[in-house]
Design a protein around this nucleic acid. Structure first.
Length: 420
RNA sequence: GGAGACGUCGCAUAGUCCGGUCGAGUGCACCACCCUGCUAAGGUGGAGUCCCCGCAAGGGGACCGCGGGUUCAAAUCCCGCCGUCUCCGCCA
């Protein structure tokens, strides 16, 4: 939910943001109207209610013989109040619906346009070159007996897989490395629920346009989360946080579930796009004034991980039209995948400013003692998909894969050898 | 799965049987001031959240887990839901 004050006082700012996203500008005018209607309805109801409250007191105090007449009068008033109340709540609902359809205001500097209009901020690490024909991650995974897609499909269907042997160990090692970095940066580790209630899912903004991406268990009215961001954002729902000692920072580990509806035929080979994977996700609750600095901090942590793993990557500033509903700015780290000759997204970090917090009612106390919504930010610290870039980048002609040095203590291996 | 108890302003509680004087008392914690003087006590006062109107001062409304209902009027009566706890059963 965007800031209603912003909508009321500077609608042009909201319109400009909509324009850069390629979203509806007319929606802003609708929202402004709905806001005015809502406030008028509330004022009308509250005036009547005040009258009723005052009248109620005289009824209570009245002598017995006068009471009957007063009550009859009060009944008429009550009917009016009821109508006014219904009108007010309808106007509120209308405003919530219209204003709720406006995505977060994009930050200055975010490139306008759609998916292809991103700006590359930097490219880091030389692209690997091979004097042999490099194998793709699945070929390597099979050679190493690390990835088993066939049995994944047998047990659970397409886009499911088994990580086996060094594959399983590699994923755990990645998570462990990420967790160590998180701890060094003062993040609090959390292992989160992966089934959440509807209000939490809606509050984090995932039940909008992409609701069909989400697994739902109707018998239990629970959603399977596609990222621990959902649980991490819901963690402090309805709370007033004390941020006087600095931001609250978490690293949430969970299995993630995605239906991948609408991506049929895309990335069908290997584990690039799957229904289930592991992810270590960072999440920060900060004073809105510190949000952009926090965003840089998350990005730096992510880059530290990719550098440690010796991956070649680029940092892109996602265009406004490609931002999620809640994000005001998003940086993606994309690693070079040699056999695809392309950069593929490995991490993403979003600054949701106060948008998400406003929906979830998460506030902090400012220096002046007043409460105000916090800013929330999230970013990936490690996921299963990294295995793709890792295997392909560090492969050798014989199909073995050199383990990047920082990963070795967690994996207990320097080289992954093909299983004959 | 069965049975029961409970959910009130940061915490702990009173109020609910018998609806209005309860947005709500008390204790602790908290803040300010005063007094006194010492590893703290006493006194006075203040203090919740959200929304609407207003430049402001201020005014009004909502909130007793959540949502409905009854009523002129609901913390209080009725229904549904959510959550917590206890006992029994079952179980990976």
């Amino acid at each position: 939910m965007i800031d209603p004050v912003l909508l009321r006082e500077t609608p042009d700012l909201v319109k400009a943001s909509q324009e850069r996203r390629g979203a509806s500008v007319g929606l802003v005018d609708e929202a402004v109207e709905a806001d005015a209607a809502r406030r008028a309805a509330i004022a009308a109801f509250e005036a009547l209610r005040a009258e009723q409250n005052a009248f109620g007191k005289t009824v209570a105090k009245a002598a017995k013989d006068e009471k009957a007449a007063l009550v009859a009068q009060a009944q008429q008033l009550a009917a009016q109040v009821k109508d006014a109340q219904r009108a007010a709540s309808e106007a509120e609902a209308r405003f919530a619906e219209v204003a709720g359809g406006i995505p977060n205001i994009v930050l200055d500097g975010v490139p306008a346009g759609g998916e292809d209009d991103f700006v590359t901020l930097r490219e880091v690490g030389g692209k690997p070159e091979f004097d042999f024909a490099p194998r793709d991650h699945l070929a390597l995974g099979e050679l190493l007996d690390a990835i088993d897609m066939e049995r994944g499909a047998k047990v659970s269907g397409a886009r499911f897989y088994f990580l086996k042997g060094v594959g399983a160990r590699l994923e755990l090692a990645l998570m462990q490395l990420g967790l160590q970095r998180a701890l060094e940066s003062g993040l609090t580790p959390l292992i989160t629920p992966t089934l959440v209630r509807p209000d939490i899912m809606a509050g984090t903004g995932f039940l909008g346009a992409h609701a069909d991406e989400i697994y739902y268990l109707p018998d239990d009215e629970l959603y399977l989360t596609g990222t621990s961001e959902v649980a991490l954002a819901g963690y402090h729902k309805d709370e007033i946080l004390d941020l006087s000692a600095g931001p609250k920072r978490y690293a949430g580990w969970s299995t993630c579930y995605r239906r991948e509806a609408g991506s049929h035929g895309k990335d069908t080979r290997g584990i690039i796009r799957v229904h289930q994977f592991q992810k270590l996700e960072m999440f920060s609750y900060v004073d809105p004034a510190d949000a952009e600095a926090e965003h840089e901090r998350l990005l730096a942590l992510q880059e530290g991980m990719l550098k440690s793993l010796g991956l070649s990557y680029r940092v892109i500033d996602t265009a406004a039209g490609d931002l999620g509903t809640s994000a005001a700015r998003k940086f993606d780290l994309e690693a070079w995948v040699p056999t695809q000759g392309a950069y593929r997204e490995l991490t993403s970090t979003s600054n949701c400013t106060t948008f998400q917090a406003r929906r979830l009612d998460i506030r902090h106390r400012r220096d002046d003692g007043k409460t105000a919504p916090v800013a929330t930010l999230n970013g990936t610290l490690a996921t299963t998909r990294w295995i793709v870039a890792l295997l392909e980048t560090h492969q050798r002609a014989d199909g073995s894969v050199v383990v990047p040095e920082p990963l070795r203590p967690f994996l207990g291996l320097d080289v992954l050898e093909p299983v004959s």
